[in-house]
Simulated assay, not measured.
Amino acid sequence: MIVVTAPTGQIGSQVVQDLLKADAPVRVIARDPARLAPGVAERVDVVQGSHGDPAVAAALEGADAVFWLVMADPRATTIDDAYTGFTRPVLPSLAKAGRVVGISALGRGTPVAARAGHVTGSLAQDDLIAATGVPYRALTMPSFMDNVRRQATPIKEQGILRGPYVPDLPLPTVATRDIAAVAAGLLLDNTWTGFEEVPVIGPEDLTWTEIAAIVADVLGRPVRYEQTPPDVFKADMQRFGSSGAIAQGLLDMALAKNNGLDHVTPGIPRTPTTFRQWCLDNLA
């Protein structure tokens, strides 16, 4: 049995579909099972609840494999609460699983990793899980291409992409469908052991100026990138519902990316989906 957490999210939902295509037995842990994709509930074992619930811990224990994704609570009072604090209640159950595949981030070993907000929390969580001795693969990623979809309204109405990133700094991105494919492959493979980080990185590094130009070309309308000042970005995150700590964590992560957090060692394999293809398939 393969257990999938966050099965209604943009990554988890695609992991579920990939596993079902392989005819794997799947159990999902969902706060709201009604949000599962059509036809999924009839093909999987559904456990309703959140990660800290006793029923959820029981659902993890003894699984052949677990897909572990923490969707950081935007109201959390600290980054630690959002990641390691969220994971600790079920750590004994995770330790008894056959193997675990988790969603994490690039940055380990960089000078800015210790103050990189959500990335720092993700890396600490990886250490916590790995310390149990359970076979663990942490998928380490840059920013997701899919996050651009959140700006569909300003793109459509104002022709603007906004963010805290330096306009002309090339940065890697990755499509969530490629993340899901890598995760599903590891969940289905019972031959690996130990702890490793597995970089999952798209095929090209692009500046945000180039990203805006690709969006403009695909949509056939003018689109430009506008860098958001740090204080405005944090205030916007709080206005959208994040606590002060989570908003600061998002800002710290962005500033760390501006300062080399997502540096990629040459020669690392890249995933297939280009940003242009993602735009054609999803944004247009």
Rank of each mutant, 00 (worst) to 15 (best):
H118A: 12
G121L: 14
V40D: 11
A34E: 12
P135E: 08
N190T: 14
A116K: 04
D73R: 08
L283F: 15
V15C: 11
L219H: 08
L20I: 12
A235F: 05
G12R: 06
E197C: 01
D189Y: 07
K96I: 07
F240S: 10
A30N: 10
R224T: 01
R149A: 06
Q14S: 05
A212V: 03
P203N: 00
L283H: 14
A95T: 01
S122I: 05
A213Y: 08
S13Q: 08
R149C: 02
Q227T: 04
T78E: 00
T120E: 00
T84E: 00
A247F: 04
T132E: 02
T274A: 10
A152L: 13
F144N: 05
G12L: 09
A183D: 05
P142R: 15
V56G: 13
L171G: 08
W192L: 04
A37H: 08
A254R: 13
R239N: 09
A114H: 11
Q248G: 02
A254W: 15
P170H: 04
T87E: 15
D146W: 13
Q14I: 05
L69F: 09
T193C: 12
D80Y: 02
V200D: 15
V182I: 07
P222L: 06
L251P: 10
G49E: 13
G9V: 13
P142V: 12
G109H: 14
R137V: 13
A116I: 04
S143Y: 11
R35C: 02
G202R: 14
P222E: 01
R43Y: 00
F144R: 04
D189I: 01
G9P: 11
P272E: 07
T87A: 15
S243A: 08
W278E: 03
V16P: 04
I211K: 00
T140P: 11
A97R: 06
D64P: 01
T191N: 12
P142T: 14
P203L: 09
L36S: 04
G98M: 07
L20F: 11
V200A: 15
V218M: 02
L161V: 01
V4W: 01
D126Q: 05
Q158Y: 13
G102I: 04
H118D: 12
P135A: 10
P170C: 07
G107W: 14
M71Q: 06
A30M: 09
P229L: 09
R137M: 12
L20R: 09
D178N: 09
T78C: 00
L186I: 11
R75A: 15
A63M: 04
A6G: 14
R75Y: 12
A41F: 01
D231C: 00
W192M: 06
L161C: 06
A124M: 04
P266N: 03
R177Y: 08
I214E: 15
A63C: 03
A114C: 05
E197Y: 01
P38M: 00
V200Q: 15
T273F: 09
Q125T: 03
G107D: 11
V26Y: 06
K21T: 14
W278L: 10
A284V: 14
D53K: 07
